[in-house]
C-alpha cells in the first residue's frame, strides 16, 4: 500500500522536477500504462491474447481528434476534407463538435466493437491462437478503412493540426500540465478499478477461466459472458488511453494504431509482468521511456533491443520483470511454495 501511495505522490510531484518536454513524454507513457492495464486484464488474468488493442486505442484517439479538429477549424471545414474535395462536413462528424459526445464515443465505440467481436467469438468458443488472429484481422480491416477513406479520416496522415481544448490553448504549458494531471488521475482511477476487479470473485473466475475454461463451465459459470465483459472493459480502457494520447501528442494516424503498435502494447505487458497490474503499468512506462532514450541516440538499434528483450523475457522470465523481482524476494525469504506452477498462457 505504501508503495502505491509513494508512486501516486511521485506522479503528482513530477511536474516540479521535469521539463515541459519530459513531462509531456511522461504523460504519453502514462496513457500507454492505461492500455497496458486493460490488456493485462484480458491477457494476464483471463489468458486471452489480443493483438488488436491498437484499434481500440486508435478509435478512442480518433474520437478525441475529431473533436479537436473541429475545435481548431472554428466552424470551417477541416483542411484535409477540403483537399479531398469534400464541400461540407459529413453527418457523422457533426456531433463531435461536442466535447462530451466525443469523450463518450471514445469510450463507447471501442467497447461496442470489442463486444461485437467478443459476442461472435467467445460464444462460439473461438479462442487461443484463432481469437488472436481475428484481432489482428480487425486491425488490418480498420486501418485499411481509415487509410482508404481519406476524405473522412485524413487517410495515412491521420488527423492533426489541433489548437485548443474547451477554449484552452493546447500549446500552453498550463494546459499541458493540467492534461498531465488529468492523465494521472485517470490512470489511478483505472488502476483502482482493475485492483478491485482482480481482487473480486469475478477476478477469481477470470483466473479460473485462464486455468481451465471448460472446468469453469461445469461449475456453472458461463465463461463467454465473463470473457465478453472483460474484453469490452479492456477495450474501453484502451479507448480512454487513446483520447489522452491525442491530447498529449497532437496527432493520430493509422500507423500509430496498426499491427506494430498493437504488438508493442502486448510487449509492454509481457516484459513488465503479465498477471500483475503494477507490472503491466510499469512495463508500459519503462519500455517507452527506454524507447525514447534509445531511439534518439540509436534510431535503428531500438527494434533490435526490443526484440532481444522479448526473447529474453519469453525464454527466461515468463512472468516478466515483476516475476523476476518476486523470485528474488521469495528467494530471500525462502518461502517458496512447493512446485509453484508456471501459468500457461496461449502461445504468442
Amino acid at each position: 500500500m505504501a508503495g502505491y501511495a509513494a508512486a501516486a505522490v511521485a506522479l503528482f510531484a513530477a511536474p516540479m522536477f521535469l521539463s515541459d518536454f519530459r513531462l509531456n513524454l511522461l504523460a504519453k507513457f502514462l496513457a500507454f500504462a492505461i492500455v497496458a492495464l486493460g490488456l493485462d486484464l484480458i491477457w494476464g488474468y483471463t489468458g486471452i491474447l489480443s493483438l488488436g488493442h491498437g484499434i481500440f486505442f486508435g478509435i478512442g484517439a480518433y474520437a478525441m481528434a475529431m473533436y479537436l479538429k473541429l475545435e481548431a477549424s472554428g466552424g470551417r471545414l477541416p483542411d484535409f476534407m477540403g483537399w479531398s474535395g469534400l464541400k461540407e462536413l459529413p453527418l457523422f462528424w457533426q456531433p463531435f463538435s461536442s466535447f462530451g459526445f466525443a469523450v463518450a464515443m471514445g469510450i463507447v465505440m471501442p467497447a461496442l466493437l470489442a463486444l461485437f467481436l467478443g459476442f461472435f467469438t467467445f460464444r462460439n468458443r473461438i479462442r487461443g491462437v484463432y481469437f488472436t488472429i481475428l484481432t489482428q484481422a480487425l486491425v488490418i480491416i480498420t486501418t485499411t478503412l481509415l487509410v482508404g477513406q481519406q476524405a473522412f479520416t485524413g487517410g495515412t496522415n491521420g488527423v492533426t493540426g489541433f489548437s485548443k481544448i474547451l477554449g484552452a490553448s493546447l500549446a500552453s504549458p498550463d494546459t499541458k500540465r493540467m492534461l498531465y494531471f488529468v492523465t494521472v488521475l485517470v490512470l489511478i482511477a483505472v488502476f483502482v478499478a482493475c485492483r478491485y476487479i482482480v481482487g473480486s470473485r469475478f477476478g477469481k473466475v477470470l483466473r479460473a477461466i485462464r486455468d481451465g475454461e471448460n472446468r469453469v463451465r461445469f461449475i456453472g459459470y458461463n465463461p463467454a459472458m465473463y470473457q465478453m465483459v472483460i474484453f469490452t472493459l479492456s477495450a474501453a480502457f484502451a479507448g480512454i488511453a487513446g483520447m489522452l494520447f491525442v491530447l498529449h501528442v497532437g496527432i493520430i494516424s493509422p500507423s500509430m494504431m496498426g499491427i506494430v503498435p498493437s504488438i508493442e502494447m502486448v510487449l509492454w505487458v509481457a516484459i513488465g509482468g503479465r498477471g500483475t497490474l503494477i507490472g503491466a503499468a510499469m512495463g508500459a512506462v519503462l519500455l517507452n521511456w527506454a524507447k525514447s532514450e534509445f531511439s534518439t541516440s540509436y534510431p535503428e538499434g531500438w527494434t533490435y533491443f526490443l526484440g532481444a528483450m522479448f526473447v529474453i523475457v519469453v525464454v527466461f522470465l515468463p512472468n516478466g520483470l515483476t516475476g523476476l523481482l518476486g523470485k528474488i524476494k521469495l528467494g530471500k525469504k525462502r518461502r517458496v511454495t512447493k512446485n509453484e506452477p508456471t501459468i500457461e498462457y496461449p502461445a504468442m
Binding site: 470473485r201 477469481k204 473466475v205 483466473r207 479460473a208 485462464r210 486455468d211 481451465g212 471448460n214 472446468r215 469453469v216 461449475i219 459459470y221 506452477p341 501459468i343
Partner: peptide, 16 residues
Amino acid sequence: PSIFPSMTVLENLEIA
C-alpha cells in the same frame, strides 16, 4: 483432476 492450478485451495473452493 481438473482444479485451477494457479489459484489457492481456498480460492478454488470459493468459486465453486
